[in-house]
Design a binder for these strands. Structure first.
Lengths: 230, 230
DNA sequence: ACCTGAACACCGTTCAAGT
DNA sequence: ACCTGAACACCGTTCAAGT
């Protein structure tokens, strides 16, 4: 995010400062590998993101990757961290409702640009420290709304499950044709006694953005109700 | 669930009813394989649920499974279907709030008994037709609450994302130690400027049941607000 | 109708060796 | 400090063959 990075923390100045381009190259190749992995994930999906594929893309042996990442999981966490740290979840709004919306619409935006992201965060512990950034913004906003720490944390989990779940569903639907459109349901449901679901008359193309906005508004209204109850 | 199953639908009575134990055996082995796969999933997790492991458990060659399921995905869908069809999502309550609670507490119960279930439903299209059962109950309840079809469907997605997301998080946390407890956060967060999150004083053991109940209540309150707004 | 055995084209990762 | 090459212990699945 910040245009210039801190100049490689010049601790221990007593040590002779002999030029060491390796340090820089090492970081560069780490970044390069993260970029390649993310590109693979975005363009070909999670199944195509293999250590061998990443290695191939930078024309190197698979085992070379293990000089930069201790495992595939480590690489995945770095990818997730790279995506999340690049975002600003704090919109700087005075109103907690706007803060909440900004925060989770930003997260949703990341998930839509990188459809593999929810899987990275939900799947086995590839969640990096940076996931605490949206948590921080959310807890502050909900504190302003009048919730205590526990209820704020609970609501945070609700918001993040909702956001990631929707985005994952959308990504999956786009790929696999699982949207709740009429013909899909019709052929899968016929004669099972799902009277309401069967008759359901939804638009041919489900508006995921509107659906997400509705969910957010519903949660905001719920927060207001819970806060006034206290 | 029901003690006796319908007697193998006796359609086409003109066809000579010569004994065919194969039919029964075939179904039996399918059921057996589903049971074995579910047991593997429950006891050893999703990574241990491989075609080879299932085959080993019934002392057969891996390829024998393909006589009963066209692919691993097909088997996974059958496992999910088996778990979901055994549940009753309709509590028969007159009040839509109670119906909603019953429906998603039931789903949550399934997920806690079978920690691999959310993964099955969320992951690549292993979602069976039976997932429409909770959808049907939810749409009816939300109709009673005063929401139209579109908003009901949106709220259904919110509820299901929330329920599956929480359960998956809980299952993962229990295995990987990712709960939002004080020490976990302390060591991962230190000195990153997450002021609120850092100071957060949560109980050592997060009460997932209470957290889920809170989320449901918040959503119910949100539904009431959205319905009265109409 | 159901099962076997060998094989294919993959995985992530270890280990010993090179520079 | 970084990379290679061969190997290990796995995957899901195809194919041809058996009964």
């Amino acid at each position: 995010m910040s245009p210039r990075r801190p100049s490689k923390k010049p601790k221990k100045p007593n040590k002779p400062a002999q030029a060491r381009p390796q340090r820089t190259r090492r970081d560069l190749s780490r970044d390069k590998l993260i970029a390649v992995a993310l590109d693979l994930l975005d363009r070909k999906g999670p199944a195509a993101l293999t250590m061998r594929a990443v290695a191939d893309a930078v024309e190197v042996t698979p085992m070379a990757l293990y000089n930069h990442f201790s495992s595939k999981r480590d690489l995945l966490a770095a990818v997730a961290d790279h995506v999340i740290s690049a975002a600003e979840f704090d919109g700087g709004h005075a109103d907690w409702r706007e803060q909440l919306r900004h925060c989770f619409q930003t997260l949703r935006g990341l998930c839509l640009r990188h459809p593999g992201l929810p899987g990275l965060l939900e799947r086995e512990g590839a969640a990096p420290v940076s996931v605490f950034a949206p948590m921080e913004v959310t807890l502050r906003a909900l504190g302003d709304a009048g919730l205590d720490e526990i209820d704020s944390t609970r609501t945070y989990f609700l918001l993040i499950s909702f956001t990631l779940g929707q985005a994952a569903y959308q990504a999956r639907g786009a790929i696999e044709g699982l949207e709740p459109s009429k013909q899909i349901r019709a052929e899968r449901i016929a004669g099972r006694g799902y009277r309401v679901t069967e008759r359901l008359d939804l638009p041919a193309r489900w508006d995921f953005d509107a659906s997400f906005a509705f969910g957010l508004s519903l949660i905001v209204a719920g927060v207001e109700a819970m806060a006034s109850k206290r």
